[in-house]
Every structure is written in structure tokens, then in C-alpha cells.
Simulated scan of single mutants.
Amino acid sequence: MGNITIEIHYKSDSRTLQKGSFQLRGRKSEKIALDFWKQIKKGNSHRAELEKVIVDGDQDITQLVIDLEKLEWNISMNDNLPF
């Protein structure tokens, strides 16, 4: 089991960076980053706009996180269909 450091750069009222260290525990870094991003959005009344996601100081996974967020959103929308 390894640890990764995730930096999330976003705009809310101003440009902001939040950083944390997380254990992988068999999960992919983009899933951990998305969960971290969801926590950040909750604390900002969902006004936050994602700019960049960096893992371990040099790996840009922004697009992976955006794609995973869209996928999860689409799945949740389809689960709520009445048919």
C-alpha cells in the first residue's frame, strides 16, 4: 500500500489550492481525487470550478477526474429514470 499526494487547484471566490495525502488501498488515484474534489465542492456550496488535479507533484490527472465525474453523474441520472 502506498500513499499519494493530491493537489486540487480550483476557483471559488478566488483561485485556491487544497492538498492532501491519501492511502491508495487498491483504489485508483483519479477515484481518490474525485472523492476529495466532492468534499471540497460540498464545503463551497458547489460553487467551486475545477482547474487542475496533480498527483505526487508532477502527474496531471485533471481530465481523468473530469471524465470520471461525468461518468458517475450520468450513471446517477440513469438510475433515477422511472422506466
Results as ranks from 00 to 15, higher is better:
Ser14Val: 08
Ile4Thr: 01
Asp58His: 15
Ser21Thr: 09
Lys41Gln: 10
Lys11Tyr: 02
Ser76Val: 11
Asn80Phe: 15
Gln63Pro: 02
Gln23His: 03
Lys11Thr: 02
Ile4Val: 14
Met77His: 10
Thr5Trp: 06
Arg47Ser: 01
Glu72Asp: 13
Asp35Gln: 14
Lys70Glu: 09
Thr62Ala: 09
Ser21Cys: 05
Arg15Leu: 08
Gln59Glu: 13
Val55Thr: 04
Ala33Ile: 06
Gln23Ser: 03
Leu17Glu: 02
Gln63Glu: 15
Leu71Ile: 13
Tyr10Lys: 04
Ile61Ser: 07
Asp13Ile: 08
Gln23Thr: 03
Gly2Thr: 05
Ile75Arg: 15
Asp67Thr: 14
Ala33His: 09
Ile61Asn: 09
Gln18Ser: 06
Val53Gly: 07
Thr16Ala: 08
Met1Leu: 04
Glu49Asp: 08
Thr16Trp: 02
Gly20Glu: 08
Leu64His: 10
Gly57Ala: 01
Leu24Ala: 03
His46Leu: 00
Ser76Ile: 09
Asp60His: 10
Gln18Thr: 04
Asp35Cys: 10
Ile32Val: 08
Gln23Met: 01
Gln18Phe: 08
Lys42Asn: 06
Thr62Phe: 13
Ile8Ser: 04
Trp37Ile: 08
Lys52Arg: 13
Asn74Gly: 12
Gly43Asp: 06
Asn78Trp: 13
Glu51Asp: 03
Ser29Thr: 12
Glu49Ile: 12
Ile40Thr: 04
Phe83His: 14
Leu81Ser: 08
Asn74Ile: 12
Lys52Gly: 02
Ala33Pro: 00
Arg47Gln: 04
Ile40Glu: 01
Pro82Gln: 10
Lys52Trp: 06
Ala48Pro: 00
Leu64Cys: 07
Arg27Gly: 05
Met77Arg: 14
Asp58Trp: 09
Lys11Glu: 03
Asn3Thr: 06
Ser45Met: 04
Gly57His: 04
Ser21Met: 10
Lys38Leu: 14
Leu24Cys: 02
Thr16Tyr: 03
Asp58Thr: 11
Trp73Leu: 15
Asp60Val: 09
Leu68Gln: 09
Ile54Ser: 05
Gln18Asn: 09
Asp79Cys: 14
His9Trp: 06
Glu51Trp: 04
Lys38Gln: 12
Asp35Arg: 12
Ile61Leu: 08
Lys11Ala: 02
Met1Thr: 07
Val65Ser: 02
Ile32Thr: 00
Pro82Trp: 08
Thr62Ser: 13
Ser12His: 00
Ile6Val: 13
Gln59Pro: 02
His46Met: 02
Ala48Trp: 00
Gln63Trp: 13
Ser12Phe: 01
Val53Lys: 07
Glu72Leu: 15
Lys41Thr: 07
Leu17Ser: 00
Gly20Asp: 05
Ala33Phe: 09
Ser12Ala: 08
Lys19Asn: 06
Glu69Lys: 10
Ala48Asp: 01
Lys52Pro: 05
Leu71Tyr: 13
Ser76Lys: 15
Ile61Trp: 11
Met77Gly: 03
Ile8Tyr: 02
